[in-house]
Design a protein around this nucleic acid. Structure first.
Lengths: 205, 205
DNA sequence: GCTTCGAGACGAGACGAACCGTCTTGACAG
DNA sequence: CTGTCAAGACGGTTCGTCTCGTCTCGAAGC
């Protein structure tokens, strides 16, 4: 429960031009110098904006970057839902391959990693990060798995949410730690292995 | 391939007393103020040491903390290997429960999270972090799984390394993102689900 | 053996640079 | 008029480097 804004900037008077310039500059800069050396002063300078204009509307550089990246993602991707061709394995493989490609893209990588890192350190930012970026994607997987469960392709006893963790956990972990490359071979193998865990058992237990 | 040390401090003349005081102070302080507000100056002050003594031996505060934490872990835990009672499920559950408890301990949590976060941002540190802390633990799991594979409890077709990722990925991810509590119920469920993926298939390809 | 001496690590802290977050100014827009 | 804007001054931290004078240690000289 965030306290009421200590000062009440008048949103109706806000300069849209400055806002977009700030968001744009922050994404550019985080790609150039990395998150730790991203400074509010540099963002302001690059955006041609006074520092106070940033401090007026955002509590931290992380918040700026989160909003910038949220805008960026929402503008191109319209999370309509995972494909459902009836072939669960093919669907998951296709989506995870696409996700792997996205995470390998340099323009996506730098800001997203910065946010992931920052929210691992700051629970308050993590909340926002989860709500705006992580959860929406995670829910798409959960829904797809529930559909497969209704179709009898997945054991009704397994928790779809845990199943999503099983699928995305290793993926995220490998990416965050750079343990290995996010190849299609990896994602395909991961999907196959996870599906072995989810498939209905004939009788046993 | 790191360049030769630009200056060559004489290791034989190094003060063991100062070293331990610095490592001790850094662990204490990271627990008190958190990693972002951990400063070299504060470590030096707490340790009763000149700043230069820290800068002489370590390239960054992350490196200090890594060494401090490595010492800490090595002193208490003697990685002799995972238990092997023959019951793979019970063994994994026991170990993962213990790991969950360890990760829930505040004294362990703060420094380890700081290191995980820092090495997610800094590939060079990540290398050290992986070699000194992550890999040793990971290999114990891999060995245990290979033993189970030889005993015919695990499908010979699955890659033990990938299997370890499947087991630890969701765990680490949940911990790092604080997606949920590291309860024994969670770890047990995770082990059960992963083992479903690893169990030999009767015949089908 | 005992002293002398130089090298180098040590504690302490001064130093300029960078960035923080706040505050002030004057322009301008609603 | 009121409130946002660009610009930047301001004091406060922390950075990483540097200069001190002290100390420990091993080699050289007696």
């Amino acid at each position: 429960m965030p306290s009421a804004t200590p000062k009440n900037p008048d949103v109706s008077r806000r300069s849209a031009h400055s806002r977009t310039a700030i968001l744009r500059a922050s994404v550019e800069l985080v790609g150039e110098v990395g998150y730790p050396r991203l400074t509010i002063e540099a963002i302001a300078a690059r955006a041609g904006v006074g520092k106070q204009t940033i401090y007026r509307w955002w509590p931290s550089k992380a918040a700026v970057l989160l909003e910038a990246f949220t805008d960026l993602v929402h503008s191109e991707e319209h999370g309509s839902g995972l494909p459902d061709t009836g072939d669960l394995e093919a669907d998951l493989k296709a989506v995870l391959r696409a996700t792997a490609d996205e995470f390998s893209d340099a323009g996506f990588e730098a800001p997203y990693r910065a946010l992931a890192v920052a929210s691992a350190a700051d629970p308050e930012l993590a909340e926002q990060f989860a709500v705006r970026l992580r959860e929406p994607g995670r829910k798409l997987y959960a829904e797809r798995l529930r559909a497969a469960q209704r179709a009898g392709q997945i054991d009704p006893a397994v928790d779809p949410d845990l199943a999503v963790e099983l699928l995305l956990g290793p993926f995220q972990q490998r990416w965050l730690n750079r343990t290995g490359p996010l190849t299609h071979a990896f994602t395909d193998g991961l999907v196959e292995l996870v599906l072995r865990a989810l498939t209905p058992r004939s009788a046993a237990d």
